[in-house]
Amino acid sequence: MDLYSSIFNFMYLFIDSFGFLIISALGLAIIFGMMGIINLAHGEYIMLGAYITTLTAAAGMPFIIALLCGSLGVGLFGGIVDRLIIRHLYKRPLDSVVASWGVSLIMSQGMLVLMGPSIPGLSTPMGSINVGQFDYSVYRIFLGFLAIFIMIVLYVLFKKTKFGLHSRATMQNAVIARNLGINSDRMYCMTYILGSVLAGLAGALYAPTLSIVPTMGSNFMMLSFVTVVVGGADPMTGTLLSGGLLSLFNGGLSMIFGTLMGRLGLLVVAILFIRVLPEGFSGLVERQTLRVNRKKQEAISNGESN
């Protein structure tokens, strides 16, 4: 393999892994970061999104419509689960783990009963390109860039809109937020639905690349869980940095030693990282920004006293 094609190979593996980690982790990260709820049914939400998308597309709808149905369908499902179960468990991480684990079991078993052990998948759109001796899926490269686009949309949503401001305020202190007139329960419900829509979107986007089986969620769940743990409480910065770091190792190791080692390496890096920085990337970033801010402030007050 010449240099050019091995660089491309690494880049492809990196982008593929980055896209996968970010797209599948965002829903989990937002629900965890904003609500302190660990949604163990996240993988099954992704599975549901993949099923809805595949079935809608198989019924003759264009892929983009199927994708919307998948995301919004899971959003609706998440909304119902929130009203029935999750709303009683806001800010109770341990109880929410048990409850959402129950939901995940019901969903995967239910899907097995409903649709059987598997349904026919869709073909991957966009074809492939050939570099060196390998063929690369254009669609998976596209998903890597789409991940960045989704992050930008979420960044704008959280930093520039009223919903974003209110949800960040609620996340930091729900009691104060509601004392200031914010309906914090509604913020939680909407955040949960947003997380569900993102999970559905992940399932929809990856549906054409995977076999559609009731247990497909577990693979997503493990990797998004690791991403969120390494990322820490801030769903945006945390997920972005963690997805980047883990993909660097995953991509590099996969290229040299194959997929299995890539996966193992990712887990080892995650464990080591958490050993050193238990609060993940967001803890680190938060400390840094507060420190910089304080320095700036000191500089201002020194300037004043001179």
Binding site: H166, R168, A169, Q172
Partner: peptide, 17 residues
């Protein structure tokens, strides 16, 4: 009870509800 991670201006904007 200020929101520590929000800026001064963002804190103020929350009060508009």
């Amino acid at each position: 009870g200020v929101f520590p991670l929000l800026t001064v201006e963002e804190n103020l904007l929350v009060g508009q509800c």
